[in-house]
Design a protein around this nucleic acid. Sequence first.
DNA 1: ATAATAATAGTCAATATTAGTCAAAGAATT
DNA 2: AATTCTTTGACTAATATTGACTATTATTAT
Lengths: 155, 155
Amino acid sequence: MADENISDLIEHYLKEILADNEQVKIRRSEIAGLFDVVPSQINYVINTRFTIQNGYIVESKRGGGGYIRIEKVHLLDDIDVLNSLIEAIGNKLSKRDSETIVQTLYNNDLINRREVSIILAAIDKDAIDLNNSDLTDILRANIMVSILNRLRYER
Amino acid sequence: MADENISDLIEHYLKEILADNEQVKIRRSEIAGLFDVVPSQINYVINTRFTIQNGYIVESKRGGGGYIRIEKVHLLDDIDVLNSLIEAIGNKLSKRDSETIVQTLYNNDLINRREVSIILAAIDKDAIDLNNSDLTDILRANIMVSILNRLRYER
DNA sequence: ATAATAATAGTCAATATTAGTCAAAGAATT
DNA sequence: AATTCTTTGACTAATATTGACTATTATTAT
């Protein structure tokens, strides 16, 4: 415990609060001041230690009264399918593969018919077409991964 | 929810009244005085939080006995809601407006909580960010319109 | 009636107050 | 030595707050 760096200390500080609460809402500069680090280090801690993979979602607001809120989410038990799909996607995804994935989700009862059509609408060719098929495949991958990550937990 | 900014407090104050009433009629300077802000901040709150997309119409009158009236709007049916939202989007859509739209869909029972989160995941900043904020707004608009169109006959 | 004045609300740009990004430098680990 | 992780700070972005100026409507005076 003695040889922790400051990012670890900040991480533990926040997780201690999260042990008793579903969420923690902070003012970035306040926490930075508390640990005597620059404010952007708080972002570093969040980006490296409070990711969705770890079961946290983060939202924030700038301007007066701004904040960062970290929320603990309950990761579902049976998410092997999702994890392997996310892994398999990588950074590009063809239309054909995306349809296969949606079908897999449906077959595994991870989404229903309505959700199928919402997801297909989101990655619809016309919606994400930018006259650059590489870019379209990248976007399709990003959007699909984002949705799959969302399906990993419930609130 | 103690440490919100003043604009949020004003928003909640008005929405609390609107929870029990179809409309609320205020004197701008009175509300400004109540929260100790300049009168034009009331306009800021209205312009950012009581837009037509959020299901409110606002009308006002100047001069003696002047007022601002905020009214909850009743769209006739689901199709109307979807059409007016699609119309309002145009070809670009900010993150803030997109969240308002999703909220409106939910308030009108057009989507459920899970669908809210799937849609938000689809238009998540990280998913559709291409280092070009104009492009991001265009993509967000495209995807949202695509989903709204799907919801028109998926029901 | 008309003109002047008072009493409102609206607009817009400047400023303040937050958080986010990114790349470089430094430290720790392999 | 190379690689990865941490720390820092300059710059950017988003949101809120403020106030000077403008526009509209009502009231009062002539």
